[in-house]
Amino acid sequence: MLNDLEYFEPETISDVITFLAKHGKDTKLIAGGTDLLVDMKKGKVKPKYLVNLMKIPELSHIIEDGGGLRIGATTTFREIEESKLIKEKYPLLFEAARAMGTVQIRNMATIGGNICNALPSADIPPALVALDAKAKIVGQSGERFLPLEEFFVGIRKTALESDELIREVHVKSPPAGSGTAFLKIGRTASDLATLNVAVRVTLENNGACKEVRVVVGGGVGPTLIRSKRAETLLEGKILEEPLIEKTAREVSKELKPRPTSIRASPFYKIEVSKVLVKRALMKALGRAKAGEDR
């Protein structure tokens, strides 16, 4: 049962900022509500004020801009999934958005809400980190940009201050020679991730690996994990299967799954992460070579 609260529907971002400056600590911002309302109904979260962001037009958009993408915070997963621009130029985002929940959930859930909820099993954050995405954060003291991997601080914990909100997510266009892949394991097609992996491989003209991102999520730690070892091992090298397998083994050493998960044991997650990371790297490499991704 929801607690007694005051509910607001501001129409501008500045109204939200003003409100948060005053009541930030007692306020929950709501977008799609697919996580928050469940928590509120269970009494896990009892905000004094509930501020709905869905009536603010300047928060919902997908815009191509200066070699990248700006996605408004209240853009729904369905809008991302159905964007021709994203499907063609950012297939990694398309694949990750589509992997989340059911159509019903994707019709409601928003990218900003998903990020701010900061669940380690979320699907779109690994893809965003693999694309070096940044959160555009606005608050009383102005605006700031934060790389998304720094935004996640722990399970359900973010770097957002109580008087701030995410306005947009900025995604850089993958450089020429890039290939990406998103793979997920869940118990059903619409499950939370037992494991997910987002990979970007960017090749030099000579075929060597210029830049790589291997990001593992699905409850392998308090936050998703961007593997530095993978970057060290692969960048500057010609990518071949034995090296990729070695890298996959190394990445698995960085994972620290909770022992209490009911979806899979830590042992399974660590061992099978090797399979997923390898498959994702091979797939991304294949796409990079084929020039499928831009």
Binding site: E245, S252, A264, Y268, E271, V272
Partner: peptide
Amino acid sequence: MNRERVWRALRKKGEKRAFA
């Protein structure tokens, strides 16, 4: 016969293709 149970049985059997 969930994924992990099947996977453990495959390991026990020594499934060669089970990479890792």
